[in-house]
Design a protein around this nucleic acid. Structure first.
Lengths: 327, 327
DNA sequence: TTGAAAGCGATACCAT
DNA sequence: ATGGTATCGCTTTCAA
């Protein structure tokens, strides 16, 4: 149905090689020839077949982005940035949603590896070994996952979490809870250890509340657990959970920030919560953009193993306040 | 690097044809042969090359989903559902984000058409003619876009909007505003006309407030316009805008629902806003699932032109109340 | 039931 | 600067 290179060649009175070169290596051709061929091609509505090209060159012109949950507000900005940046290189993007399920992630990796030049794995839930195995076959860039030798873009929330702990300390909080995200998440591990370190340094009590899901609902149910712990502040794994905490506390009649302070992470909700959420910045879009650039670099022959750390800072809004007295 | 069909054939002591058939038409082969081939293939880690297959069959095993804005909370559930449903058919999904830009949408369509079996266009911003042109080349299913002859999944918010108007009428509201979304959006047109019709039938005043962007920010700035109109209730194009309205009114010291009632559309925020948003249900996930099924049907040879209308209903939460007196 | 061979639509090496 | 041709990996007639 689409005209083939053959038909263009005949219509232009040249060989297929020439038509091919008119598009891929115009510098090798006489400028007039290029013009002629392109003209004829345009008239015929010729579009080079990506698959034929891929079969012969081994390059697909596509990349794949895998995320655990499109529904988590952290990812859309990331996805959008990847999309945009890939577009600049003329690459198309396969999106895979693993639904927080490692097996599905593996299946997607396998299924996709035959049609993409490389992968961006955002918050992968796979084991190091599994990721390494895939990286051995195709270039891989990791977002928020730290595996030596692979390309990494890390949103370094340790810094922001440290700021958050100090912020709470200054407000007089002495007993704090960390509401955790997925245990397989590098970000969760990083945030938890940063919180532990910060709390230890300042002599604060830090309780761990295990969140079920990194979502609004997960946060809401964690709120029910938190009210029993008598902490005066909670730092949540991410903004979704913090948002859920807000709702949970509100439902339980617990005032935020009067009775308990709440801090989120990722700053994907802006000032949209009520009260506006104090949170830790992330720059998910930067991460997406940089990860894509890094992947394109790898495809262009750069060495793997580069690590980019994006700094984070505390953004104080309205869910943190002076610790309540006598508690 | 990946084993080819040839190597599997040699290792199994059969011809390439046989290996091919062992995977695509096992019924044509002796069961033992199938078992043997599959065994060898598995041992070698053989995975059929999608592109080679596509080149020879003309089928790619991929579909593309185009949305105007991944960041709009309406789309993630839709994306997720498409992803999940496509997975059942073993298809991979290209995601395209047009950023509300028709040109980009066209570019994506063109670029992708060489590697997908069909498209799902969600809330397309293209003209009917453009969409028809693309549909002539590849199967297309539309979500929230009504073009005769093409596959359509329509979230019929007319019904829900009618309910919303009646609900406001019962609460004593007489002057209502509709805060509009993108003019190129079918949903926006449908919602606006349903609101007009409902208002006319009940003898209500309906003002049109033109929203800038279908986003939180767009709603927030529309709120500033709304306070001047002296309406006692506003229906927003979608939940994002309604959410922005809430924030805008709050910033302006206007009480919701005391002074003004607010109704959203799509129910993607659940009860996460403050106050919990009265809204119109959508079932974006159903739409995604059904659109994918429909597309798969088209690929399987069904006739195009089918229309699926998904009903909507009003979900009353806490942003609507009795109209203020003496206004 | 299985094999041989001709494509599918491009690229790229080798000639000219 | 241009053309001829083998090749990429698989599917699919046509024969056997």
């Amino acid at each position: 149905m689409n005209p083939t290179i053959q038909q263009v060649a005949e219509a232009a009175g040249v060989s297929r090689s020439t038509v091919s070169r008119a598009f891929t290596r115009p510098d090798m051709l006489n400028p007039e020839t290029v013009a002629l061929v392109r003209d004829v091609a345009a008239r015929l509505g010729y579009v080079p077949s990506q698959v034929a090209r891929a079969l012969s060159t081994g390059r697909f012109g596509n990349i794949a982005l895998l995320v655990p949950d499109v529904g988590n507000p952290f990812f859309p900005p990331l996805i959008r940035a990847v999309e945009k940046q890939a577009d600049l290189s003329g690459a198309c993007v396969f999106l895979g949603n693993s639904d927080e399920n490692p097996e599905r992630e593996n299946v997607l990796l396998k299924r996709l590896s035959g049609q993409v030049d490389g992968f961006i794995l955002a918050s992968s839930r796979l084991s190091d070994a599994e990721i390494r195995a895939h990286a051995a076959r195709r270039p891989v860039v990791l977002v928020n996952r730290d595996i030596a030798g692979l390309g990494r873009v890390l949103i370094d929330s340790a810094q922001g979490v440290g700021d958050a702990i100090r912020h709470l300390h200054e407000l007089g909080h002495r007993r704090i809870a960390y509401v955790s995200g997925p245990s397989a998440s590098w970000s969760n591990q990083q945030r938890w250890s940063a919180a532990s370190r910060g709390a230890r340094d300042l002599g604060l009590d830090l309780a761990l509340i295990e969140g079920e899901q990194p979502s609004f609902e997960g946060g809401a149910s964690a709120a029910r657990l938190a009210v029993d712990t008598r902490v005066t502040a909670a730092i949540a794994f991410d903004d979704s959970m913090a948002h859920g905490l807000l709702a949970g506390f509100s439902a339980a009649g617990v005032d935020v920030p009067g009775t308990i302070s709440v801090i989120g992470c990722d700053d994907v909700l802006g000032a949209r919560t009520y009260p506006p959420l104090t949170t830790i910045s992330s720059g998910a879009d930067d991460a997406g953009r940089l990860a894509t650039d890094m992947l394109m670099g790898l495809l262009g022959g750069s060495q793997a193993g580069e690590t980019l750390r994006l700094p984070t800072t505390l953004i104080v809004r309205a869910t943190t306040a002076i610790a309540r007295q006598g508690s």
